[in-house]
């Protein structure tokens, strides 16, 4: 018997997190929303939508939120894997479901999403270049040949979560997680995912400056 816990890090996403959580609960039942000190009532919206809610008393960052979600999921002895899912609705539940099935079918420990394995995701040329460069650099530093190192959609098996601890609270956590996951040496595949960039997710700072941050952190971590 398998049990997937969905970890949804949230920071001031009250207008969208309710719908995302409702869809997730309908599909997976076990959903924990890690509220990173939101001031707009995101936590109450998530709770009403059927998620378990863990609230950071102060804002710590997305890396810290993921780790808190992992810790919460690990409290359930029946949890077999964790699915990381962004609160802004840019991920597809069908992708997530397929990734979990693939984890079990191919006996993998890690399945991460990639925007570059098919052409469903529409990306601007500059953003594409930034993300491809980031993936190439992380390939050099970790030895892991990834096509997309900064995709929020991830499935991690329990034994991976027991060995990994994110200490980079903020922007650098994505690169750190790639390093940590690569260091476990456990079987890892990428899965094609469709990221939908809505006006909402664009307005949440998925700007090119973010790409600069990613590149700088990869070089000076």
């Amino acid at each position: 018997m398998t049990r997937t816990w969905v970890v949804v890090p949230t920071y001031n996403e009250a207008s969208v997190v309710g719908d995302v959580i409702r869809d997730l609960v309908a599909e997976f039942t076990y959903v924990v929303c890690v509220d990173d000190g939101s001031t707009d009532g995101s936590a109450d919206v998530a709770l009403a939508a059927g998620a378990h809610v863990v609230t950071h008393p102060v804002n710590l960052g997305q890396g810290a939120s993921l780790q808190t979600g992992f810790d919460y999921a690990l409290l359930d002895p029946d949890m077999t894997e964790v699915l990381c899912f962004d609160a802004d609705g840019q991920h597809q539940i069908s992708d997530a479901r397929a990734m979990i099935e693939r984890l079990h079918a191919e006996d993998l420990a890690i399945v991460t999403g990639s925007r570059f394995l098919d052409d469903r995701t529409e990306l601007g040329a500059l953003k594409r270049l930034t993300l491809r460069t980031a993936a190439r650099i992380s390939r050099i530093t970790t030895g892991k040949a990834l096509t997309d190192a900064h995709n929020g959609l991830r499935v991690l098996r329990r034994d991976v979560l027991e060995r990994v601890r994110i200490t980079q609270n903020r922007m650098a956590h994505a690169s750190e997680l790639v390093d940590l996951l690569a260091a476990t040496g456990m079987p890892w595949k990428e899965h094609p995912t469709h990221i939908v960039y809505t006006d909402y997710s664009r307005s949440k700072g998925q700007s090119l400056l973010n790409g600069v941050n990613i590149l700088v952190e990869l070089l000076f971590k």
């Binding site: 409702r22 309908a26 039942t29 810290a64």
Partner: peptide
Amino acid sequence: ARGLALLQARQPRTPGPVAGDD
């Protein structure tokens, strides 16, 4: 902060999906 957050975790009143009633 994480320790405090985990101690004060809130669980949904009705475990499981109750879609559309919120």
